[in-house]
Each structure stands twice: as structure tokens, then as C-alpha cells.
Design a protein around this nucleic acid. Structure first.
Length: 424
RNA sequence: GGGGAGAUACUCAAGUUAGGUUAACGAGGACAGACUGUAAAUCUGUUGGCUUUGCCUUCGCAGGUUCGAAUCCUGCUCUCCCCA
């Protein structure tokens, strides 16, 4: 446990810390982090607290994950320039249930059991007057106004802050107090935007009980282009749920991380031990074109989230899809095509429909690979379309000969966009 | 309550003062091509739709004037600023 703090620092998982944290981490204690059920799935952003809690638990601490059924109902103003869209209780409950399932799934992988609590269970019977008296008495308005999250919104006349959001940090502060009282929880962790809320909890516990508690935050991870990490180029979140982000896409996300960022991310996201990571980094630097770090991280993450079998399959089809020799594709068996079909964007078309005869541009639009014929047309002109790995030079009528494996046609746009059509 | 400014494509932002080469300058982003390693950087192209030498739809919304309107007129909605 002595090295825990150093390891967390080495991994880049500590941005800000309460003094004395290091000593506290040297003895077994209880740590919690909360996440509000604003969606029915976790994404790479809110996976981070869970990763850190697992690290801590593995080193002998007890971790608690708090699902914010109550706080989600209020909406955390931290890190938000504008008002949040409010979710009603039913949605929050549904989200909480499916997130809890996901968390169990994530923990099973490590055979770790982490307690999951929901703050609606202790907030639902709270009386407003009692709460304000019990908690509000300890916080001056001056103190609350000085919080970064509040300050920003007060200066912003257009999107002022509601009293409800203003009170958010008191509820989160109370959560920490409650967990300290009932579960001897002494450390709260969160993303860097949670610093203010964590301090509120620490202050509340101090004032109520005189006990000293701790906290730390991890950095807000942004990519070099300024986009929040964990979002795709289009700004979509990369979700844990395979219906929202396909395992193939998930794998590709990691594979595509650039060299100058991959070292940082493998430290943050993978559970490989530091020595292994250092070795991989050395090897990667020798031959960056092998993409050792990207492949390792992509594999580690995909097998954690989507399982060993699935990730092996994805690696297999990835190597086929990105194979430079276009002849390879013609000697594959049907089973592999079936696997490809299941894992990448696809469409199916009846033989009857196919036999009507389509020009490539119309076909691409029809199957949904391109949203408009013009775009498809332009792509062909640019020679960025391939059929069955073979570059298309100009628009032509799709024929039977284009079907391979007896029932599939593989389309490719650019280097990394694939689409497969099944003719049945 | 009084006065002023504005609303243009994914975003920012020209054009509006004399109405017509304006699908709408430019920048960013995004996508593609070349080079590579499914990297970065760089250079090039694209960035409303279609039955593509042409047609249709688009400059806050609804009307009007005109052969013709993002540009002029009327009404409406919304946003911002200043003074009370």
C-alpha cells in the first residue's frame, strides 16, 4: 500500500489533493465517488472514477460507488456553462438500475465487490426545513458564492443559476457526511470539476464531528484538440453499452489514439502494472509503427468491457478489414463474413431487389452507407470508395460478380469506414 | 416603461448603405485524397438536395413590392446592450 500514492501520481490520476492524503492512504480506509444517473449507460468519462476506485480496492481499501438518484434530480452546476436538462424521477430510476448492472459487470471482471449506494435512499424522507437547519447553518452564503461552479453562473446573466442548483453542493456534502457516519468513509474522489463539492463535504464533516477527512480529484482529460477525452470526433460519447457504441467502434476508438497521447492514456485507463506499461512504452518508442500501445490498450479495454471472446473476434476482423492485400478477402470462409457482418455497420438486401440493378451511387445511398447520392458520387470521384478492398475508379452498375463469399459485398469509404451488405 | 443593436449554412462570420455572375467571401471544425503506421505534421479537394451540361430548396417566422430579394416594405417571434 506504500506505493499506492506514487502509483496514482505516476498514472496521472491525481490532480488536486487534500494535504495529508498520502498518510491516510497508507492505512486501510473507505473511499467513495459519486456519479449522477444522467444516462442509462456509463461512458468513458464517468468510467474514470470507477477505475480509480478499483485501483484503491485492489490495494486493500474499501470502495463505495454512489449513484446520485437525489443529486441527479437537482443537477450539478459544476463544470456546466448552461442549465442542465432536468430528468424526471422515473428516468433517473431506470438509469440508476441499468448503470448499477453495468458496474456489477465491470467489477465481476476483477472479482471485486464494491458497495453501491444511492443517495435517494437517505434523501427521500428528508424534510426541507430540517435539512436547511442541519446542513445550511454551517455554510455562509459568501462561502457558497465563492465556489467556482457558482461564480461562473452568477457572472453569466443569460444562464443564471437557480436556487436548486445553487444548493447542489450542500446535498453532495451531506452525502459524504452520511457515508462518513454510516460507513466510516474518509475519502471522496472525483473529476477535477468536483473539487468544490468534495471540499464542501469535508468542511461539513469537520464542523459536525471535528473529524478530518480527505479527497482528491483526477484531471479533466482532454485530447490535444481540446475535445473532452472519451468522446468521438463528432463529439459523441463512447459508451459502455454495446447498443450505444458497438464493440467494434469501441475498439477502434482506442486504436486511433495518436502517439503523443497514448502513453498518457494507457497509464490512466489500463490496469496493467506500471512495470509492464513501462516496458510497452519502451517497445512502442522503438517502433511506433507497430502501434504496440494502441493495440494493447484497445485489447485491455475491449476485453474488460465487452469480454474476451468478443474482443478476440474484433481483433480478427480488424486485421482482415485493414489488410493491405486485397486478395485475402476473397479466400475467407463464410463464417468470418458472418462475424464481420455482425460487428460492423451493415444492411441486407433481397436477391430480388439486388437484381433490379443499381448503380454504385444509388446503391450506397440505398443501403444507408451515404446520406446522399451527391456525397457518394463525390467519394467515387475522389477514389475513396472500395468494394471488397478494391478501389473503385468510377461509377458502375453493381453486378453479381461483386458479391463475394456467396452473399456479401464489403464497402469501404476512406481508410477506416466499412460497411457490409448481405444479399439473401 | 424609454432608446439602440441584432437573428445568415456544423460553428464563428462577411454580404443588407445604389435589389440581378450569391448555394451565398472568409476562418475554424469535419470528411476525403497524397505521404505514412488505421499516428502526427504538411499539401490538395469537398463541406444544401436531386431524376446532375439542368432542376429544386435555403440567409429568424409570415406575408407584400418586383421580371428578379439574404438585400426593399409590413406584421410577428426571439436575443443582446444602454437609460429609468
Amino acid at each position: 500500500m506504500e506505493n499506492l500514492m506514487e502509483e496514482l501520481l505516476w498514472r496521472g490520476l491525481i490532480q488536486n489533493q487534500v494535504p495529508g492524503l498520502k498518510n491516510k492512504l497508507n492505512q486501510s480506509t473507505t473511499i467513495y465517488s459519486g456519479l449522477d444517473p444522467t444516462s442509462d449507460s456509463l461512458h468513458l468519462g464517468n468510467l474514470l472514477p470507477i477505475i480509480v476506485l478499483i485501483h484503491l480496492q485492489k490495494k486493500g481499501h474499501k470502495s463505495i460507488i454512489l449513484i446520485g438518484g437525489a443529486t441527479g434530480y437537482i443537477g450539478d452546476p459544476s463544470g456546466k456553462k448552461n442549465k442542465r436538462i432536468l430528468l424526471d424521477k422515473e428516468v433517473l430510476n431506470k438509469n440508476a438500475i441499468s448503470i448499477e448492472k453495468q458496474i456489477h459487470h465491470l467489477l465481476n471482471f476483477f472479482s471485486e465487490k464494491i458497495e453501491i449506494v444511492n443517495n435517494k435512499n437517505w434523501m427521500k424522507n428528508t424534510n426541507f426545513v430540517e435539512f436547511i437547519h442541519y446542513v445550511g447553518i454551517h455554510f455562509s452564503i459568501n462561502y457558497m458564492l465563492s465556489k467556482e461552479s457558482v461564480k461562473n453562473r452568477i457572472e453569466n446573466k443569460k444562464n443564471g443559476i437557480s436556487f436548486m442548483e445553487f444548493s447542489y453542493s450542500l446535498i453532495q456534502g451531506f452525502d459524504f457526511f452520511y457515508l462518513n457516519k454510516t460507513r466510516k468513509c474518509e475519502i471522496q474522489i472525483g473529476g477535477s470539476d468536483q473539487w468544490g463539492n468534495i471540499i464542501t463535504g469535508i468542511d461539513l464533516i469537520k464542523k459536525k464531528t471535528g473529524k478530518k477527512t480527505y479527497g482528491f480529484t483526477f484531471p479533466l482529460i482532454t485530447k490535444s484538440n481540446g475535445i473532452k477525452f472519451g468522446k468521438s470526433e463528432k463529439g459523441e460519447n463512447i459508451w459502455i453499452n454495446s447498443n450505444k457504441t458497438s464493440p467494434y467502434k469501441f475498439y477502434q476508438f482506442w486504436i486511433n489514439i495518436s502517439d503523443n497521447e497514448i502513453e498518457k492514456y494507457i497509464k490512466i485507463y489500463s490496469f496493467l502494472n506500471p512495470k509492464t506499461i513501462e516496458n510497452l512504452i519502451q517497445n512502442h518508442r522503438k517502433e511506433p509503427s507497430k502501434r504496440i500501445l494502441q493495440k494493447n490498450l484497445a485489447y485491455e479495454m475491449t476485453r474488460w468491457i465487452h469480454g474476451e471472446t468478443k474482443s478476440k473476434k474484433i481483433i480478427e476482423i480488424t486485421s482482415i478489414l485493414f489488410e493491405k492485400n486485397h486478395r485475402i478477402i476473397h479466400i475467407l470462409n463464410e463464417k468470418i463474413f458472418d462475424t464481420i457482418y455482425e460487428n460492423i455497420p451493415h444492411a441486407c438486401l433481397s436477391k430480388k431487389e439486388f437484381n433490379k440493378g443499381y448503380f454504385l451511387t444509388d446503391f450506397l445511398k440505398k443501403i444507408g452507407f451515404f446520406s446522399s447520392k451527391k456525397k457518394a458520387d463525390f467519394a467515387i470521384k475522389n477514389q475513396s470508395i472500395s468494394i471488397n478492398k478494391k478501389n473503385v475508379k468510377k461509377n458502375f452498375l453493381i453486378k453479381k460478380e461483386n458479391i463475394i463469399g456467396n452473399k456479401y459485398i464489403l464497402f469501404q469509404f476512406g481508410k477506416k469506414n466499412f460497411f457490409i451488405v448481405k444479399i439473401f
